[in-house]
Design a protein around this nucleic acid. Sequence first.
DNA 1: TTGTAGGCGTTATCAA
DNA 2: TTGATAACGCCTACAA
Lengths: 340, 340
Amino acid sequence: MTNNTPVTLKFLAEKLKMSVSTVSKALNNYPTINEYTKKRVQEMARELHFTPNKSAINLKEKKSRIIGIILPNLLDHFFTRSIYGVEQFATQNGYNVIISQSHDDLEKEIQSANMLLRSRVDGLIVAISKHTQDFAHLDQFENMGIPVVYYTRNPSFNLSCHKVLGNTFQGCYKATQFLINRGHKKIAYLGGPKMINFTHDRFNGYINALKDNGVPFSADLVAYTDFDKENTISAIQNLFDNPQNTPTALVAFKEPILFDAIKYLRSINHPNLDQIECIGFGNTSFISYLDSPPIASVEENPESVGENAIKLLLQLINREIDMENYQKVMVDCKLIVHEA
Amino acid sequence: MTNNTPVTLKFLAEKLKMSVSTVSKALNNYPTINEYTKKRVQEMARELHFTPNKSAINLKEKKSRIIGIILPNLLDHFFTRSIYGVEQFATQNGYNVIISQSHDDLEKEIQSANMLLRSRVDGLIVAISKHTQDFAHLDQFENMGIPVVYYTRNPSFNLSCHKVLGNTFQGCYKATQFLINRGHKKIAYLGGPKMINFTHDRFNGYINALKDNGVPFSADLVAYTDFDKENTISAIQNLFDNPQNTPTALVAFKEPILFDAIKYLRSINHPNLDQIECIGFGNTSFISYLDSPPIASVEENPESVGENAIKLLLQLINREIDMENYQKVMVDCKLIVHEA
DNA sequence: TTGTAGGCGTTATCAA
DNA sequence: TTGATAACGCCTACAA
């Protein structure tokens, strides 16, 4: 069954006893080609399952119609969801997407970048690893005239670049505001790794919401952790160790961390845990299965972040926006209040 | 800063005042090229950031070093985890991976297949959509001599194909056996959509474990649902509605469904829910946050499924296994018992 | 309306 | 040790 001679234009041309260019034009519906000829060619092409060779076309057209995406991790639902936005819009515009995971490792990110460069992607969307401070491997693209859009992770060391970021300041502001409106005065803030810069944006959202509402800030109510459970627990111990001054609400930088926190507080039978109201970033579907669920979630709209990134990238590819005219797009968060 | 003339072999050759073929050979470390010449060429290449054009190489070599993956959904952790296995092994062997989601839609699957065909992938790994019964769009690959490995989803209508499947029979057998060993006699089985064929494999695992242990089977203890919460609840109602004959254990075909079931039983304050022991397929990390967690999980080892798929595919690509010599690989499940 | 020829960037064969 | 040439599959300006 396996067909050995590849079906190329040349092959079709020989079968049909015409020239390669006529076949090519017929398949591309050139107006100068006789209707009957077209029909013959197109039928034969279908019959023999002719599929144009993309490598040849890319070589000719000097473009690949491929968008590269580099991101840390597909296990993080934020990124998986963001791909939806990218993919949909890319496909609509005739682009394919190659996804490459860096696993938050700089070396892997560089490798991914190099392979995508060799593949001559027409554009790159990248959420940098948490160790990326040098951008040489990404600057290569711009030097070759290939536009790059940084998304989600803010490359604050790289001033001249296109960015699409979640408005994490606004998200944290909203969460804090919400808790204040519900009467809380002692709202704890559990932040993420200080190396990731949205940690600070979120903290600023928290601080500003307090200030704008005349709620006094207390350093005792702020702690930091990373993605490690032990550290989360000791951070939570710090926040909740003083029985006279225990927080009545908590804003956490990511939901799984918040779940660890809640689990710990339950495990030590923290008094009036039921009254403590929590909010985390994420809006995981799992929340509905929890016994002490957060009262609300900050929905970061990853699909929208992805969609904005690809939209901007396509404008850059199509030269509708100048490469040097650096854009910054912020995508707002939404507070989702969970039903009791 | 943007360099306008693309850095090609020709460009380097002109700069260095030698021929294109010498430059090519120097960069590929041909033994016939003078060491000094090599050095000069390689330095210049580095300086000008020469990157070989993959489209040109593909065209020449008639291969792309790209593996295509078509799968239903990246939001399902099973698939995301399976990609780890594929990616790692593919990268090690110099292959890149293009992932395309079908969203369990046949039309999208066909589109993905066609685009991957145009991209001249060297091989395809596919988890078919639940509506795929005609395989023309996938057979095209084999007809062009491009090997295809079906994984996870068993294309039972397609007898002559390479398969890598989770041994879901064995997983369900083990789960049931485990519950029997713990003294349960009334073990309920909550199955998935009957259209997906592993539903039946799992049921057979359940049945066989009962039989092999002399536990009588009762049709009252079996119900089916899909991914819809309402249907899950009514299935659970059917299983647990008879107070005299209530099951003491439950095997469910997927964890989120199991969580819905548990949640429902708790919401109606089912008597002695605490004694009911549950097992689902998945082994979600989220389990540790649940108040009534399953006693164990069936870990389907998706990374291993992915790894086996890519290993088989590479053997087919390298003609170490004949394309017509259809292989079937089963990947065993593992029972993970959760600590109290 | 169709065909010829040249080129996209790379590699490989053969000649110098 | 190096260079000229052809080829991979496709497209297109130009010639017929």
